[in-house]
Design a protein around this nucleic acid. Structure first.
Length: 410
RNA sequence: GCGCAGAUGGCGGAGUGGUCAAUCGCAUCUGACUGUAAAUCAGACGCCUUCGGGCUACGUAGGUUCAAAUCCUACUCUGCGCA
């Protein structure tokens, strides 16, 4: 077998947990793990230039196949020479496959569930879901939900409502055009509200789609030589399904080629996530990187790292930044941080930085009062400054995590 | 000075006899946000409450009516027009 464009080396293995530190080498640079991967869905970390993201210490970023396919179109990204050139980011890149949109724009559409849902809600095991409200344009006709069938997913465009059909092959072909270092197999992220029978059926389908993704990847020599592909484990909150999925994806091969790493996916009631991660990582081979998709809060990352996960992408730091919530270190808190809502009245005249312990540009230069003003005045710099801070916090957070693993503390 | 129009909750502005503590927008307050339909969304927003309700309110003062933000009278103020 020819050498792969991606390698993973474990530097230090904890004796207290499944935690490890390591380095993922890609054609565009190295990723020190555990790593936080900022999300730039539409080929931009919202509100930040790539230079800002570099200066925060981020090794890599993640973009989304579905969104870039719709706009500007993957052909245009290919003409630029790939995602990195297109967006001016020279480091490693990931693309998600669109599998999460099968869920977020499908059964979850217009419902009060996303990556997490509350198990406490009545009727959790049925279809329990109430309305929510995303309505960016209240006058726009409601978007029809995506529909999953055996071959793929019929999505509606979030831009104009038009229909688009993704198969695993289609997703991989788009990801090949986008050209990220690490691609993900096309999967179905199931709703935690689906019964176990559905989870089972969907899982079998996701496994078939994984094989189709792998095949499409391997059969294109040009992209195969440059890109890596991660398989995705699903299985909801069911131990037997999670373990089966981990085993099947770990062993899956096409023409002697296996996945380069793994993604752990799903939408969860909060209390179910870590058990699912533990089941999966018990089975996955140690020598390949494990990406926990869409997670998370620093507290979640600590727990997942202890269970052996290596990389994490999450919109939360940047989304919260745009909506006013920032992290602050707090040595008295369980996980060492707390959230502040900068729009609250108490910060209007607060002359302190967001976090006196933080070395980020925002904290070195601006007061909470200024941030509070920017939010109230709806100035876009608010989201930028808070995104700088929140991402700096996440990146520092995982850095400290790496250090404590290497010191043998966790 | 005369004529016309108007004065509504922090602001703008609906409402023109009962179902009005008063639509709506803004502002304000609080909350949510975890592979981004998200610079978004939700709730609260006169005072008090044992959450049943009670009280004070639609420029001011009177009046009509079972009942007035809504009708009448006077006054005060504002805008426009004419002198």
């Amino acid at each position: 077998m020819s050498s792969r464009p991606l390698s993973f080396t474990i530097k230090h293995k904890s004796t207290k947990s499944r935690a490890r530190t390591g380095v993922i080498k890609t054609p565009h640079g190295d990723i020190q793990t555990p790593a936080f991967v900022p999300v730039g869905t539409k080929a931009t970390i919202k509100g930040l230039t790539p230079e800002m993201v570099v200066s925060l210490g981020a090794d890599c970023i993640l973009a989304n196949t579905y969104h870039l396919y719709l706009q500007p179109g993957h052909d245009i990204i290919k003409k630029h020479g790939g995602l990195g050139k297109f967006m001016g980011w020279s480091g490693p890149t990931f693309t998600d496959s669109g599998g999460f949109q099968a869920f977020s724009l499908g059964v979850a559409l217009g419902k009060n569930i996303t990556k997490f849902t509350s198990k406490a809600r009545p009727g959790y095991d049925e279809i329990a879901i109430q309305k929510t409200g995303h309505k960016a344009d209240p006058d726009a006709p409601a978007l029809q939900p995506a529909k999953v069938d055996e071959q793929g997913v019929m999505f509606r465009s979030i831009i104009d409502g038009s229909a688009h059909y993704f198969t695993p092959t289609k997703s991989i072909e788009i990801q090949q055009a986008i050209g990220a270092d690490i691609m993900f197999a096309f999967d179905e992220c199931t709703s935690p509200h689906e019964p176990v029978e559905y989870q089972k059926r969907s899982l079998d389908r996701t496994h078939r789609w994984a094989m189709e993704s792998l095949k499409t990847h391997v059969d294109n020599p040009e992209s195969f030589s440059k890109q890596a592909l991660f398989g995705i484990i699903q299985g909801g909150r069911h131990e037997e399904l999670r373990k089966e999925s981990a085993k099947i994806i770990a062993e899956m091969q096409y023409n002697g080629v296996e996945f380069d790493g793994f993604g752990i996916g799903g939408s969860f009631a909060k209390e179910d996530m870590m058990t699912a991660v533990a089941w999966v990582n018990e089975i996955l081979p140690e020598n390949k990187p494990r990406h926990l998709l869409g997670i998370g809060e620093p507290a979640d990352i600590v727990m997942a790292v202890k269970e052996g996960c290596d990389t994490f992408d999450c919109v939360m730091p940047t989304r919260n930044a745009r909506t006013g919530t920032v992290f602050m270190r707090d040595d008295l808190a369980e996980f060492g941080y707390t959230n502040l809502n900068m729009r609250n009245a108490q910060y209007v005249e607060d002359m302190k930085p967001i976090d006196a312990q933080c070395e980020c540009y925002t904290c070195k230069k601006y007061t909470r009062s200024y941030l509070a003003h920017l939010y109230r005045a709806q100035e876009m710099l608010a989201g930028t400054l808070a995104s700088i801070h929140n991402l700096q916090f996440m990146i520092d957070f995982v850095k400290r995590l790496r250090e404590s693993i290497e010191r043998g503390e966790i």
